[in-house]
Design a binder for these strands. Structure first.
Lengths: 238, 238
DNA sequence: TAGTGGTCTAGACCACTGG
DNA sequence: CAGTGGTCTAGACCACTAG
């Protein structure tokens, strides 16, 4: 199963070492320059290998630090969900279901808030995303209150939450992790999404990473996939 | 919303033109060299812009041809499902439920077979993927029979379908498109996945593109996400 | 401050596509 | 065949991280 490209060989080498346990979760892989020396390639090639490993979810990379071996969650396969706003070709409307309000972190969630976050209260809000007049997605979001002062006193910038984080608080979304399940709609979700209670809906738990270390945004998405499935067009060089 | 990088600006420029209809579905975007000249950048930079557009699903790229504007399906968001075999940290077993056999293309499917394919019969088989003793995924696959002679007379190479395509027929999987839904398990699926009939399961329709133009592999996946959700760890530079 | 990853230049050779 | 995207070299400057 030798890859025919140099970067492919480096990629497979590193992957094997991760799988065999030569690198533990949290460890740093060799830096780009070290890989250049070890494999006698230029940075472009070493870099490409690391980027592919990142795309496959084996590592995350951090500017100024290095390539960090990722935790492998209890999940099947790998996939990527991008922002709802990246969807094109649809008329999307957002309806605020419950305005931002302060709560405690009472969480039955796939991801645990970090130590930094639990000392703060959290802000919660939920929105309904509609294509035309059809509700397609209910999104609940949580974030720690301490990094976003007077969040609740102001409207969102252009109605966009992410744009608000960026423009008003200089917080950028840098990535995400998610878990997807098929679940039964509870009564509330069913009413909002216009489906019968207990019918199947797609559930996505997301943790967005931000430009602030240790600061995350959490979301739960419930999707009615009858009319609009979650989908993509993607092709990856193998 | 100006991007601070050159490739980001080019990327946004092209995206806007696609969204505004300056390029129709199927059109070719400017080639890498043309972008180099137009924006006074090197190929590395022009290339990066096109690669990001590809990752976002706006275009597909074809060696020797160019960057082709993608059809925007009736889907929400964008996501990527990678091969089941890329999952790590699990003991995966595959059980052949129905061995490869010849059929007509009778299709109630998200993707239509291409003209090349309908003139041929198709091969169908289905497999159950288990983690330990827990069935987690039922996979049905279809492919045109004419490109894989004596497919049914031989066992899979290492038990792997993709490896068989690669080693025996020199056909490589180059990418995929998919649609995800939450549906009710029918009786058969329920029995195989050890869930009650009509309980929610994740349904994924996949079309794999191959190194043979116009030749695809189609799959339907049914996943029991109770114990093992579909998930990932991903971070994209924004 | 030294080392890291992020971006970018200016070339090169190759395999693939289409006319 | 000319043009395309895929890979790769050998440099450069920058912003970020951590000691």
């Amino acid at each position: 199963m030798e890859k025919s490209t140099r970067y492919g060989q480096i990629q497979e080498d590193l992957k094997k070492k991760i799988q065999q346990g030569s690198y533990e979760v949290g460890d740093l892989l060799p830096s780009e320059n070290e890989l250049c020396a070890a494999y006698h390639v230029t940075r472009t090639t070493a870099r490409k290998a690391l980027q592919e490993l990142q795309n496959e979810g084996y590592i995350t990379r951090q500017h100024g630090k290095g390539s960090i071996v990722s935790e492998r969650r209890n999940t099947l396969g790998l996939l990527t969900v991008r922002g709802f706003s990246e969807t094109v070709g649809h008329e999307v409307r957002n309806v605020m279901i419950s305005k931002p309000s302060i709560h405690d972190w009472s969480r039955d969630f796939s991801f645990s808030p970090s130590e930094k976050e639990v000392v703060s209260k959290c802000i919660h809000f939920s929105r309904l995303r509609c294509v035309g007049t059809t509700p397609v997605m209910l999104e609940e979001s949580w974030l720690a209150a301490d990094c976003v002062p007077s969040f609740m006193e102001q409207e969102f910038v252009d109605g966009s939450f992410f744009k608000t984080l960026s423009k008003r608080y200089m917080i950028e979304i840098t990535g995400s992790e998610q878990e997807i399940r098929a679940v039964r709609a509870d009564e509330n979700v069913g009413i909002l999404l216009h489906v019968a209670a207990k019918s199947p809906v797609l559930y996505i738990a997301v943790r967005y990473t931000t430009s602030l270390p240790g600061y995350y945004v959490y979301s739960k998405l419930y999707c009615n996939t009858d009319k609009y499935p979650i989908g993509n067009v993607y092709s990856s060089p193998k």
